[in-house]
Design a binder for these strands. Structure first.
Lengths: 219, 219
DNA sequence: CCTACCGATCGGTAGG
DNA sequence: CCTACCGATCGGTAGG
């Protein structure tokens, strides 16, 4: 709580590998966890206040650091934003793959669709999932090169939808053209970030049901 | 082109009501058209670079003014943003009403839906229509009071969709719950701002057709 | 609407 | 990772 307070815990069982300058507290210290703290703080603040509305000082404070310290971990504020977005895409891609594999493969195209939609909502609306929303709403702040790198990951993510939509189109459950369907559907899902409130109204499951009813004809 | 160049046109037929300090050029000068120029410039720049990414100096330059001059027309940068958004909502509401009235009233619920969707796309994707996109993507920059005022206009706009969706639900063309349908559908439409390119790919009419096929069952 | 300017904030860095 | 700091930019204002 109080960073000024002296460390009163005993030093007897301090980790043996501790050497060099003394540590200020006993909790997590080493490796990349300071970097991770910066990433999480940045994601949360970028989402709430926007990239431009968040200063690197804000982020440093939220991570318990001084104003110049984030630049020890990240070359620039921009690099921090990119790292947040990339982490978001990796988590989305991973979650998507798990949803499709699961314990059993999808029973049919509609089942695959349900899994994709639900996984998408979870990554977007789940508690503490600020990384993907930041990616959706702040990509204008990226440089052209970073935007291009990220676009590759997005293509990978969106490509998974295509065969599922194609199968649904083939069996008549989806009427609109596959490509425009994908764009419109993902838009509907992504926009939920703007209005969905986990604390009230529908649940993610109800949302998933509604989306399926809206987009697909019964089989 | 060159602001330094002396005005070489003759003064003989200058407007008689010209008095007081001399004008620098002969073109539009009086009333609110400077204010309008600021609004248009701001809308364009806010959309392209974001609210925080656009300085009041940028806007002044784009409107052919000096750095301090926008504040003669608007109390603050924030007030300028709000004015852009309000103008966007007014134009959307007006266009929506015209679409539903038209020369003839809608033939049925699906026809009304088509008109609503197309009007929405036109306001969103039409050439030079930067006001509504700015409203969609920069409302985080508003104060709470301004956001609340704007929300009233948005409620008015969205309320028009409800009876249409209800009718479609009643006749079986729409399966998902009306309220969630409205939110998901408007999300799908709003998101087109992110990917739609008037210069290539589908037209607004094709987009409208695809949306109808996606959301509604044939009657 | 322009000129000249102020105060504040911000990203980033050197040097330890 | 902290301290101390720089240079630049920015919203806004006074006074005309």
């Amino acid at each position: 709580m109080d960073k000024m307070q002296a460390d009163t815990t005993t030093d007897a069982d301090a980790p043996k590998r501790a050497r060099g300058r003394p540590r200020k507290t006993l909790d997590e210290r080493d490796d990349g966890n300071r970097r991770q703290a910066l990433l999480s703080a940045a994601a949360k603040l970028f989402r709430r206040q926007g990239f431009d509305g968040t200063s690197t000082r804000d982020i440093a404070t939220a991570a318990g650091m001084q104003s110049g310290s984030p630049f020890y971990h990240f070359k620039s504020k921009d690099a921090l934003l990119y790292a947040v977005m990339e982490a978001g895409m990796f988590s989305a891609i991973e979650r998507q793959a798990k949803a499709l594999q699961g314990k059993a493969p999808p029973a049919n195209a509609a089942d695959a669709m349900r899994r994709l939609i639900k996984a998408h909502f979870e990554v977007l609306l789940g508690p503490g999932n600020d990384f993907v929303p930041v990616m959706l709403y702040e990509h204008r702040a990226l440089s052209a090169a970073e935007r291009a790198k990220l676009a590759q990951l997005q293509v990978r993510y969106e490509a998974v939808w295509t065969p599922v939509l194609q199968a649904l189109h083939d069996n008549g459950q989806l009427q609109a053209p596959v490509k425009l369907s994908r764009l419109l559907i993902l838009g509907a899902l992504n926009w939920t970030v703007q209005w969905f409130d986990r604390r009230k109204g529908a649940s993610v499951d109800e949302l998933t049901d509604a989306a399926l009813l809206l987009f697909l004809r019964a089989d």
